[in-house]
Design a protein around this nucleic acid. Sequence first.
DNA 1: TGTCCTAAATTGGTAAGACCACGGACTGAC
DNA 2: GTCAGTCCGTGGTCTTACCAATTTAGGACA
Lengths: 249, 249
Amino acid sequence: MLDIVRQDNEETTSGAARVFTFFRDRLLAGDLKAGDRLLPERELALALGVSRPVLREALRSLAMLGLLDIQHGRGAFVRAADASVLGQALTLCLAPEPNILDDVLQARIAIECQAIRLACERASERDLQAIAGILDTLVESLDDPERGGGADYAFHLALVRASGSVALMKIYEAISPLLMRSHVERRRDTFREPAITSRLVDAHREVFLSLARRDPDQAERALREHFLIGDELRRKNLISNYQPREITS
Amino acid sequence: MLDIVRQDNEETTSGAARVFTFFRDRLLAGDLKAGDRLLPERELALALGVSRPVLREALRSLAMLGLLDIQHGRGAFVRAADASVLGQALTLCLAPEPNILDDVLQARIAIECQAIRLACERASERDLQAIAGILDTLVESLDDPERGGGADYAFHLALVRASGSVALMKIYEAISPLLMRSHVERRRDTFREPAITSRLVDAHREVFLSLARRDPDQAERALREHFLIGDELRRKNLISNYQPREITS
DNA sequence: TGTCCTAAATTGGTAAGACCACGGACTGAC
DNA sequence: GTCAGTCCGTGGTCTTACCAATTTAGGACA
């Protein structure tokens, strides 16, 4: 086992990095599956030919990345890689940039528009039924910004899921937390105006119908229309929230 | 400084995790900028009230994430967050899934189609000139799969850059390494057929012209057309590469 | 005989100290 | 003035010891 570690790394890389890449490659190769338990730290350190602190540095790094679940007194377990890591990485990458929200929204539109095109080809009956169900929930919960926002999000998530593309889904999940905040806030601002909510429901219904008709161009158009409405609302809110301040200042 | 660490974390979290989130939050908040040098490990451990191994575990984790650049004999420096972290995270998330390549390609199409729409609105003259220059390189290097592939990639990257969306750009950079391989391979398979290469150049030129005309719908259509050509080629290659095996087996 | 409680073994968490290896800066000799 | 050697600061590693949480097994009691 020691030899394995030594052979696939130049001796220039330090110990902790060596152990880190060792486990990462094992994960990528599928040698380690989710739920697997690692050997105790002391044995592992001995087997890999490094001291316990060095091993721990590598293990902690993997844990911070969300790849390992280390439990006091129990051991270290391989965790199924989820999108939360991606989301964190994205957040860190985008942290120094200003006006991230608009930008991430563009990424969201990108993902969804492609997803709905794929969904028009690939969506199963179950997918369509799921989306239809969420649409009903959306209509029911018009007067509850919390539930309504949740249904709204669920609708779009179901769209992406119906595309059958894992990559799109993961990226969408990664950017979702960044969108969530604005999603609910906007809803809270606008849910009282019947004209807007009715337009919102119409837009969602139109998207769904186009998808059910398996018409990619029409579906994408409907979706873009929906986003335009949202954009318009955001501008309106920005203005109405900003004007008073300017007057008072 | 010790108090700061203690206050914004429950005492349930372990020391290394506490230090880790401490620095991560500092990075997110912008208190630590790229190029900044951290205090020596010994002083830092003292200041934060933890032992040196614990501090090292946290620092290592940050380094593995690409947020820190630890140099032997010099010190630890804050590194500008780049897309490579994102790419690694994405790779890890998608590792267990089969047929990732097609899937990532869908993500690429999603990003580019949205990017070109934005680019039609936002692209500067310099952006357009840059793309035009790459187009020339593309034409010149038709007979060199290596250079041609590079120019092809540069063309699409320039498209996304012209969108002016950092988020789209980062995500595109993140998925690029996963695409690179197939990109060059495909090119190597097809570059000898003049009919194909001429179609390829026409497709790129068409995309560029639509962008220069600031026509989002037309630009997206041209881009999708281009991807369809690529898809067609891929199928053809798959078939021609697969048939012989089936016969010989 | 069964159940519950306690104590030991297992395993991760933390600390302290010592030493090695690398880089840069200072100082001396040429 | 330039070059080389040495010293200091810094990260890299190892050893050892002990603490804390969890599990498990064995013994006491009903």
